[in-house]
Design a protein around this nucleic acid. Structure first.
Lengths: 224, 224
DNA sequence: CAAAATTAATCAAACGATTGATTAGTTAAA
DNA sequence: TTTAACTAATCAATCGTTTGATTAATTTTG
């Protein structure tokens, strides 16, 4: 067996790569089978590591689950927050930017969002669902503020139902991303195919969402 | 011990009542914890029956799951189908009727729809997800046909994205019903409270959905 | 009608399999 | 040599299911 010479830098890189690899696999398996349906043996098996490594690295199965979260949420939320707080653009532009960023992210990281929504859909509360709720609410609040601000400024129709509009944008996204078997049959192509996602789904989804929101939020006496 | 005189009719009633009771409980527990998260012990325990009764009546855990489906889908789908096939009303009225029936049903039977959507959100295909997909697609197809017909007739805007509109109506519904922790915080009330559902949620949801679809589907040169 | 035979409903106990987790020991790196 | 990375073996607990036995209800028989 050949023994490579590896410096410390390289090692650390490989270590985090290994942990990252485990999380990649776990994220996919959790999305495929759900948290309860996915076993630690299956995850470690597909990741090509010993089962005990999951506990060695992440402490427990739940630790793996939470590690997946921490990896995804931080950068994403700061991006959305910065859009919400950008005072140099008007409400319509904010809406556009938010939708562009949001749709890009959730379509690309669909495994994560499938996993996330499966767990939050458990109607019985527990520590985990509370944590997930808080995470999701941060994204929701940014969107809500954009709408509320737009209405206050007079850019958006004041009769709009802010709360249910939240349900529409996030619900529409969830439908496409989280139930791929259904949405693929409705749309006529495989929504999980990366190429189709980038070339067809994302632009079409963005365009649709903007048109829909414009139709609903536009003041009745306005013309475009 | 008193021995009641009971005719055959009465007996059968009680038997189906018991099976129905088990399915009621199972439906709730599945919604609370997911299919994998809910154990047969827990279901039988909460239903107050011996564990073996689940297998005696329904063959297996999956049998319980499928029995819940058969109980719910039949009547519901015929109602929606009859609306879709009603030629005495125009497309706008069909849309209204469909939304009224659909929203009433899914909000009331929220446990069932939570359960249904949790399982279909597993991205790995299996026999069960295929069955659920077929069931869901029937409801979707009725809605799609209403939209397609309306566009063909010229009632609806021909530039409308039919497919993504499907994602919006069913997605918005799912968001409200399937993630009650989130939607309750967004809306500011408990979406699982039966009284609130009937007095507040249903009428508001119907009104919103109709307004949204009208804004999007209305021909640009039309006035109401 | 009454006794016997048959069927349906229910139960506690136990089955083998699988779960998440831990151990004690080995290998590799610093 | 000390520490970190990794492994095979094993743990108790829980899973869905099955069993054999028992009770209750119904039908058949004499």
């Amino acid at each position: 067996m050949i023994n490579f010479v590896r410096d410390k830098k390289k090692m650390e890189k490989e270590k985090t790569d290994k942990k990252d690899h485990i999380l990649d696999v776990a994220e996919r398996v959790f999305a495929e089978l759900g948290y309860d349906g996915a076993s630690t043996r299956m995850i470690s098996g597909e990741a090509g590591v010993n089962m005990a490594m999951l506990n060695y690295y992440f402490g427990s199965k739940e630790g793996v689950f939470l590690a997946i979260f921490e990896r995804r949420i931080t950068t994403f939320q700061t991006v959305l927050l910065s859009i919400g707080n950008d005072d140099s653009i008007n409400s319509w532009e904010k809406l556009d930017k938010y939708l562009d960023s949001y749709i890009d992210k959730v379509v690309t990281n669909n495994c994560f969002h499938i996993m996330l929504n499966r767990e939050i859909s458990k109607s019985k509360k527990n520590e985990l669902t509370d944590q997930i709720t808080d995470i999701i609410m941060k994204n929701v609040t940014v969107f809500q503020n954009i709408i509320a601000e737009g209405i206050k400024k007079g850019d958006f129709n004041k009769d709009a139902d802010q709360q249910l509009l939240v349900a529409t944008i996030f619900g529409t996204k969830n439908y496409i991303v989280n139930t791929p078997h259904i949405s693929s049959r409705v749309l006529g192509f495989d929504v999980l195919d990366t190429n189709i996602q980038n070339d067809v789904l994302k632009p079409r989804f963005k365009k649709y969402m903007k048109t829909l929101l414009k139709a609903y939020l536009q003041n009745e006496n306005d013309n475009k």
